[in-house]
Every structure is written in C-alpha cells, then in structure tokens.
C-alpha cells in the first residue's frame, strides 16, 4: 500500500517535470522560429531590391520605384538635430547627477524621478507634444527641426541615465586624487573623468540613436511626410521609419520598397547596437585592467 502511494506520487512528479520541460522547450521553439521567420521574411523580400541605386536615387511613383536617398538624408538630419540638442544637455545633467548631487539629496531625487517618468511617456504623446509645442507654438511647422527636437526630448532620459551610470563606474580614487591636487572639478572632468567614461558615454549615445531611428509615431506629426530632398532644417523630411509606414499603409504595391527600407533600417540598427555593446564591453575590460 505504502510503497504504491510513493510510487504514484513519484510518477506524478516525473510527469510534472516532463510537462514543464516540454512547455519551456515549446515556448523557446515558438519564440526562435517566429523571430527567424520575421527576419528571413524581411531579408528575403527586402534584399532583391537593395542595391547602390536604391540607396542613392530619389523615390519614384510614391516610393514604389526608385530609391530612398532623400529619406536617408532626412533621417540623418533629424538624428543630427536630436543628438546635437540632447547629447550636451544629457551629459551636463548626468554630470550634475553623478558628480555634484549628494546621494539621497533632494535635487537629484526630483531630477531622477522626472527622467524616469519621461522615459515612460508613450511616443505618440511625444508626437502630440512636439506638434503642439515645436510645430505650432514655436512656429517651426512640420520640419526636420521639429522632428529632431521632439526626438531629443524622447531620448534625453536614456542618454542621461546611461551617461550617469558610466560616470559612476569611474573609480573614486581619481576624484579624490584630483581634489587632493587642488584640481577643480571642471578640469578633473575634462581631463580624467569624462575620457575614462567615454566608451560608456558613446555606448549610451548609440542606444539613443537606435531608439530615435526606430521611432515613427513621434515623427508623423512633427517632421512630416514629404519625401523630397530636404534643402534646409525647416523643410519637412520623411524619416525612414515613416517611409516604411507610409509605403505599407498608404501606397498600394509599396510592399517591396517597404521591405527593402525595413532591411536597411534593421541593418543600421544592428550595426549601431553592435558598436554600442562592443564599446560597453571595452569599458568594462578597461576598468578591470585599470584596477
């Protein structure tokens, strides 16, 4: 009797274990195969259209034919505006948080909280804000400038948080050493701390670029749709993600170009993310050899 009960419960446990294994394995198969499907689909449909001409020509018949040259340029310009504004602002705020605010201090707490909240705001809301503030209130209209500034607001929390943690990993010995030599914080930052944290800062910047480049919703009503070659920052410009959206939704027969553009976008993102993690790893290694 007793041994039978033990046998039964052991049997039940074995069955449970087996089931769990199968479920986990099934989930992993589902995830990887879906991802593989997605990636292969994009490469398969996108690759045959990509060539030198696709990257350098202007779009024809609403993007069904031709290339994406003005779109690439507009994307680069929007990113440039976004980073030109957010990078200095982000670095300065990160320096204030990591070097000047006391741990547990009030200013640092409130700034940090506002950044965490900002990081959670949905991108379409950034679009609404950008439209109301930059396009209408400041009178910049649908322009590369409006789009870039909107993205700058969006990536600010990422830039600040990554830069802050990068600066915090710089050994405190150097701060004390510099202070003991009567070196001002400003020089210590310029000569020692920022160079030491540079790979982490660049990695954070890459992360921000990646986020900005993938963004669509915040740009539709700020930088606009126009797919002409932009002549100035006050021209409307179509970012590559907006281009993909427009080809998919509004252009019958635009799928092939949409896939090709998606492939270009993903290739750029992988490149940027790869560079970011390589740099982040290098910081870590340098820290180990330095100590």
């Amino acid at each position: 009797m007793h041994s039978l009960a033990v046998y039964r419960s052991a049997h039940r446990i074995a069955l449970r274990d087996r089931t769990l294994q199968l479920l986990v394995l099934a989930a992993v198969v589902v995830i990887t195969s879906t991802f593989g499907w997605l990636l292969l689909d994009i490469v398969w449909h996108g690759a045959n259209r990509i060539g030198w001409e696709f990257l350098t020509a202007a779009p024809r018949s609403a993007g069904r034919n031709g290339g994406i040259a003005p779109i690439l340029l507009a994307t680069v310009l929007i990113l440039t505006v976004a980073l030109a504004v957010s990078a200095p602002l982000g670095l300065a705020t990160a320096i204030l948080l990591s070097e000047f605010s006391r741990p547990g201090g009030r200013a640092g707490y409130w700034i940090g909280l506002s950044l965490d909240i900002l990081a959670g705001v949905p991108s379409i809301v950034f679009g609404l804000f950008g439209n109301a503030f930059f396009c209408v209130w400041l009178g910049l209209g649908f322009s590369i400038l409006s789009g870039g500034l909107t993205l700058a607001c969006m990536v600010l929390p990422i830039l600040i948080r990554t830069a802050e943690s990068g600066l915090r990993t710089v050994p405190n010995d150097w701060r004390l050493g510099a202070a003991a030599l009567g070196i001002s914080k400003a020089s210590a930052l310029v000569n020692v701390l920022i160079p030491a944290a540079a790979p982490a800062l660049v990695a954070g910047l890459m992360l921000g670029i990646g986020r900005a480049m993938a963004e669509t919703a915040a740009l539709i009503f700020t930088s606009g749709y126009v797919d002409r070659m932009p002549a100035s920052l006050l021209d409307s410009g179509r970012a590559i993600s907006v281009h993909i959206y427009d080809l998919t939704m509004n252009v019958a027969g635009g799928d092939r170009s949409a896939y090709a553009s998606a492939l270009v976008l993903i290739a750029l993102l992988i490149l940027i993310n790869g560079a970011a993690s390589w740099l982040a790893e290098r910081t870590l290694k340098r820290r180990i050899t330095a100590s």
Partner: peptide, 25 residues
C-alpha cells in the same frame, strides 16, 4: 591643497600619460 599634498593608500595615477599626469596639476 596645493600647499598640502596627499598620497593615497592605493596608487591612483590618472589614466593619462606619465607626462600629462604631472603637467595637468
């Protein structure tokens, strides 16, 4: 701090060249 120098327990040269370590201060 220029009049009163300090040496720490753990050597803490800056991650710069030898020359820059001395010229910077």
């Amino acid at each position: 701090r220029q009049r009163v120098g300090m040496i720490f327990q753990k050597p803490n040269p800056f991650p710069l060249s030898i020359r820059r370590n001395l010229e910077m201060p």
